[in-house]
């Protein structure tokens, strides 16, 4: 079993690729891996409770840990998050790199 950190930087309302990245996250978990999805930059827009973001909602509760960058949230004035999304600092990226986890950026 491998451990992955998938970093999503894109807004799902701007890029259809976000759905494919969420599919990748779910596929990795289904293959027996541990996956953390870290939302940064405009990707955090999907974590608002009011956002219509079925790709992200399908990831939540599927065994994938979903985090949202505190800096990106603050920049965009986002204070309320979907249930299942936790706020995290950028240090989380270095934590995963230090631990030798496979880290991908999209």
């Amino acid at each position: 079993m491998a451990e992955y950190l998938l970093i999503e930087s894109r807004d799902p309302f701007e890029s259809n690729d976000v759905g494919y990245y969420c599919d990748l996250a779910r596929g990795l978990v289904e293959a027996g891996n541990r996956v953390t999805l870290f939302l940064i930059q405009n990707a955090v827009l999907a974590a608002r409770p009011s956002a219509h973001a079925p790709q992200l909602r399908a990831v939540i509760g599927s065994g994938i840990k979903v985090l949202a960058d505190d800096f990106a949230l603050k920049e965009r004035g986002i204070a309320k998050l979907l249930d299942g999304v936790q706020i995290a600092p950028i240090e989380i990226v270095v934590d995963h790199l230090e631990a030798g986890h496979k880290t991908l950026w999209h």
């Binding site: 930087s9 894109r10 990226v93 030798g100 880290t103």
Partner: peptide
């Protein structure tokens, strides 16, 4: 390196 991070353009 112990690990690699590639940050591509969009």
């Amino acid at each position: 390196s112990d690990n690699v991070l590639a940050i591509p353009t969009k």
